[in-house]
């Protein structure tokens, strides 16, 4: 019984950690610009696919990963500079459609460059599985959890102790006031998009040894990440992490104990219930609506 529960918990936490990283990407961009960036999932795909193709060129894994993440970061900046910045007076919903266009574009480009086949990435460590209390755990899961923890800690430090982090926070709270104290909004937005893209790529590389990677892997993971961010309350970093883990664990527990057919439905039902009782998500800020 316990072994079974542990097994579900392990896989739930692993997928949950990935959702959390994607959700953090959504949160960063949302905080800086109030845009929901539906292209966030594509950065996962770019991280995974670029690593695979760099590896095929004979570049060692750590360097390939670094270059792939760098590529995603640059694409994040380009997305902000070329697609979001020129449309700064647009409605939020228009901006969302722009990001949807961008995600279709990136997917189309990836399909041209990398084809439509599935690709595998080797595990980061040589041993594949660990046995814990009767359950089995991928060593890659430990990598995923470790990376996610380091990133969350790094973000905390970034927002608490660096000028840039504080500038992003200030912008998310009050754009006008931030501008008045000399924060360059465009610069803040660029950094936010770059960070979000980087986070996405990291998640994409970390999960690829478990789930494989292909040109359209970003659709579902992106959507789940968005859901996680919303459960946590859009714009809350803690919320994104909690939301991601909650979603991942809820999915595997449902598949394990209740119904595998309806595990995704249960996840979305969870959202509806949370939103009905806590209209701003678990950790959403309670700012008054602006008139």
């Amino acid at each position: 019984m316990l072994a079974e529960f542990l097994q579900y918990l392990f896989s739930g936490i692993t997928t949950g950690a990935i959702y959390a990283l994607v959700a953090l990407g959504f949160t960063l961009v949302y905080n800086a610009s109030h845009v929901i960036n539906f292209a966030q999932g594509e950065f996962l795909m770019i991280g995974g696919m670029a690593t695979v193709s760099l590896l095929a060129l004979g570049i060692p894994l750590p360097l390939a990963i670094f270059m792939a993440i760098l590529l995603a970061g640059i694409l994040g900046i380009l997305l902000q500079r070329l697609a979001i910045a020129p449309a700064k007076h647009a409605d939020v919903i228009t901006l969302i459609i722009i990001t949807i266009g961008a995600s279709i574009f990136l997917r189309g480009l990836a399909q041209l460059i990398w084809g439509k086949e599935l690709h595998a990435l080797p595990s980061f460590s040589s041993t594949e599985s660990l046995h814990v209390g009767g359950a089995v755990m991928y060593t890659q899961s430990l990598w995923v959890l470790g990376i996610a923890t380091v990133i969350v800690l790094a973000l905390v430090v970034f927002f608490k102790y660096t000028l840039m982090g504080k500038a992003i926070l200030a912008t998310s709270m009050n754009k006008r006031a931030a501008q008045l104290v000399g924060i360059r909004i465009q610069w803040v937005l660029m950094i936010a998009f770059m960070l979000a893209a980087t986070l996405g790529a990291v998640a994409g590389v970390a999960i690829a040894p478990i789930s494989f990677t292909t040109y359209d892997i970003g659709i579902m993971l992106g959507l789940k990440g968005f859901v996680a961010a919303a459960i946590g309350g859009l714009g809350s970093g803690v919320g994104a992490v909690v939301g991601g883990l909650l979603l991942g664990i809820a999915e595997t527990m449902t598949a394990g104990y209740i119904s595998s057919e309806y595990k995704d439905a249960v996840a979305f039902l969870l959202i509806l219930l949370i939103l009905f009782f806590m209209p701003r998500g678990l950790f959403g800020s309670r700012v008054a609506e602006r008139v």
Binding site: Y8, S211, M220, D264
Partner: peptide, 20 residues
């Protein structure tokens, strides 16, 4: 008799149930 979504990334839970 268990199922998974075509885009799922982990089917460990379903397999555990079948094994048990």
């Amino acid at each position: 008799d268990l199922t998974y979504g075509p885009q799922d990334t982990d089917m460990t839970a379903q397999l555990t149930r079948i094994r048990n």
